[in-house]
Design a protein around this nucleic acid. Structure first.
Lengths: 134, 134
DNA sequence: TACAATTACTACCTATTTGGTAGGAAAGAC
DNA sequence: GTCTTTCCTACCAAATAGGTAGTAATTGTA
């Protein structure tokens, strides 16, 4: 029941950009040094954030990354789900479109697990990136 | 961010005993067949539950396991934490006794993570085993 | 135009965790 | 004494986590 480094690092990248970015492009080298995260690992995480539309990125000299929106427009839940994949506590909760777990008939706990999924998502969705910058 | 099979199986064992036990000793063989969980894997899980005092177990012919308390006296959160180990979403939340994460000075998110830990634990602690038996 | 800095992409790798298996000792009922 | 069952320790394979490595593409600047 852990958030992996990907989720935590992604949040730190976004916080870093919100804190030090000022609408300028910031290189991974800078973020890597400030946050003490391997630059090559950052690349992967930032690539995911970029593809999700959370960042504007520019190649080349003086290139880097910056937020594509204001900090208060980012939902922390969205960021975490984007890099972590699903956050559902058990697989059966993730089924969709009327497909259900083969055990669902005899399962007493599905509502319990769905409720857990709900409280987690509601909580992380109640924060914006701005809330994480003091 | 997943509950492992250990947590889910443990809950199913407890639900099975609460549903079919009637204060008799139930063998792992029976539980294994009803729940379709490998008996040798069940052994490990049940051993943990037993050591935590949640079960009475008896060896030998006609032996087996039964609940040591009434279903409404079991807290689902306790059962999950017992078999899963900690459920804290990030390591820094698990620090104790004034020891804190080396990054805590510069960390903007620790309250966010602690809050997540809180809502998860509050939720799973709001259920008793009885609530999982319809 | 060369070159330095930077992102983008693809592949690979190692350690840890998950989800089990296996074998035998101990205990109790008959 | 034998059958059934728990108890205990060790082992193991596949998946996941947490990176590393190399190189191509792009852009600013001298």
């Amino acid at each position: 029941m852990r958030i992996s480094t990907k989720g935590r690092y992604a949040l730190r990248v976004m916080i870093d950009l919100a804190s030090f970015g000022n609408n300028n492009f910031i290189s991974l080298k800078d973020i890597s040094q400030r946050q003490n995260i391997p630059i090559k690992y950052l690349e992967q995480i930032v690539s995911t954030l970029n593809k999700a539309g959370y960042l504007n990125s520019m190649r080349g000299s003086n290139g880097g990354h910056r937020l594509s929106k204001a900090p208060e427009e980012y939902n922390v839940g969205d960021i975490l789900r984007t890099v972590e994949g699903t956050l559902t506590p058990v697989e059966c909760v993730a089924y969709e479109n009327g497909v259900s777990c083969p055990r669902s008939d005899s399962c007493n706990s599905i509502n319990f697990w769905k409720g857990l999924d709900d409280v987690v998502n509601k909580y992380i969705d109640s924060y914006t990136l701005k809330d994480l910058i003091q």
